[in-house]
Lab assay of single mutants.
Amino acid sequence: MAAAAAAGAGPEMVRGQVFDVGPRYTNLSYIGEGAYGMVCSAYDNVNKVRVAIKKISPFEHQTYCQRTLREIKILLRFRHENIIGINDIIRAPTIEQMKDVYIVQDLMETDLYKLLKTQHLSNDHICYFLYQILRGLKYIHSANVLHRDLKPSNLLLNTTCDLKICDFGLARVADPDHDHTGFLTEYVATRWYRAPEIMLNSKGYTKSIDIWSVGCILAEMLSNRPIFPGKHYLDQLNHILGILGSPSQEDLNCIINLKARNYLLSLPHKNKVPWNRLFPNADSKALDLLDKMLTFNPHKRIEVEQALAHPYLEQYYDPSDEPIAEAPFKFDMELDDLPKEKLKELIFEETARFQPGYRS
């Protein structure tokens, strides 16, 4: 834990890192770190609560700039109880001085990944967590956004079992017609939660990839272990087919990539493993919904509104309290091709509203 900075004593240090967030945020305490930044909790002297502050230093890398800009653009436009918001952003007053960006968010005690390492969940908890994931996802999908990296560590939890989806750095506007060349190379989302079509096709992607990830998360809540822990690309596919069985001819016809289709045709026939054999203690309604989410063919996979209306979630289902976005989200430009200098300018502009004396 960093010592509390005395008023006016300059930035606090946390594990050798400068955290320049005073005077409003003090009493910093280390939480963890990701690929390009550290997260601390801090005391907000204005709202009198502890908050989470993520320090991001992305400006050396085009990919990190892209992810940072995506996350900020999306989260500043989203407003939903099951999606983490941005409360404040701290950065230098000029673009030349801006080396880091500090993002202030609600402090959540833990995440689903940490929880599943230590606790076996009751059916009631599984049901409530799944409902909140789908409630947040309904809003995301209504904005025409794909999260693309749903996994237990991106689901934040607090002691009252509130759940918030975080990390929109890989999110995209849904565009089933656009052929994202190089899709697989830039697709760094965790393999275990990846839909089979991501490994088999490169053309376009749809909201059904997020539903697949939610199915993987439900299976993990039922058993405290990942359902498809593939060691590499082909191993991942083999794990999936080992449980779902061989795809039907109709399902194979959806695979545009001939090499991928021929690979699947070359494999020995596998039978589907019954879900109640894998999860003998699970609620039968939970397994019915799991089956509809972990469907090989993305066109037959359940959609988020149908999933919310499934009998497993009937005690929570309330369409009048499951809000959607006001308007579909649009990125003005494809960020993939922009140089990091341009992305830095866009991050600077996007964060201006939090600067003292800002006038829109």
Score class of each variant (00 low, 15 high):
D124K: 07
P328V: 06
E186N: 02
T63Q: 06
H299Q: 13
R77G: 03
E60N: 01
I84Q: 03
R70L: 14
E341T: 06
T94L: 12
I211T: 13
S320R: 04
L258R: 04
D149Y: 15
Q62N: 07
A189C: 13
N262R: 08
I256C: 13
I217Q: 10
G8M: 01
F296N: 06
A5R: 14
Q17N: 07
H269W: 11
L290Q: 14
T206Q: 12
D111K: 02
G245P: 08
L156W: 07
I133V: 03
G32T: 00
I256Q: 13
R24I: 04
P319K: 09
D283L: 01
K48L: 12
L252Q: 14
E33G: 00
V188P: 02
W275V: 05
H125F: 06
R70Q: 07
S246R: 14
G37S: 13
H180M: 11
V21M: 14
Y187T: 01
M13Y: 14
L265T: 05
Q66D: 07
A325Y: 02
R24H: 10
M199W: 02
G8Q: 13
L244G: 07
E349Q: 03
N82A: 10
G10N: 07
I31A: 01
L156H: 04
F19E: 11
N158F: 08
N87H: 08
Q66P: 08
K114H: 12
G230P: 00
L75P: 03
N297C: 11
T160G: 10
D321K: 05
G37L: 03
A7D: 12
D162L: 03
H141L: 15
C216G: 08
Y233M: 14
H232K: 00
Q119N: 01
L252F: 03
R301T: 07
K270N: 15
Y36A: 03
E303D: 15
R194N: 05
T160A: 10
K114P: 12
S57D: 01
G34C: 06
Y30F: 14
H147E: 09
E220V: 13
K231S: 01
P23N: 00
P176E: 10
I217R: 07
H269Q: 12
T110Q: 12
V101I: 11
L137I: 05
I324A: 02
L343W: 02
W275R: 15
W275Y: 10
A189R: 10
E197I: 09
L184M: 15
I217S: 13
L343F: 04
A282G: 00
A189M: 12
F129I: 15
P311I: 02
K203L: 13
P274G: 03
K330V: 02
R353Q: 06
Q315F: 04
A171W: 04
V214M: 13
T26P: 10
Y131K: 02
F129P: 01
I198W: 08
H120N: 13
D20C: 05
R172Y: 04
G34F: 04
L163D: 03
A282C: 02
L222T: 06
S208N: 05
A7G: 10
Y139V: 13
L76P: 02
S202P: 11
A219I: 10
F331A: 00
V145C: 02
E350K: 14
L241D: 08
E12I: 13
K292T: 08
I211P: 10
C254N: 05
I84G: 02
V18I: 13
C127P: 07
L69P: 02
I227N: 14
R261T: 11
A6G: 09
K231N: 14
H147M: 05
P11C: 14
F168K: 04
R79N: 02
K259I: 04
E303G: 09
E334C: 00
L313H: 05
K270I: 06
L75S: 05
D179M: 11
K340L: 07
E349T: 01
S208W: 05
N82W: 13
F331D: 06
I95F: 15
N27Y: 15
D175L: 12
V273F: 03
A2F: 05
R67S: 15
S208G: 02
D336G: 03
A5F: 00
D210A: 12
P229S: 13
L308R: 00
R261S: 12
K272D: 01
P247K: 04
T159E: 14
L184R: 05
S202C: 14
E81D: 15
N271L: 07
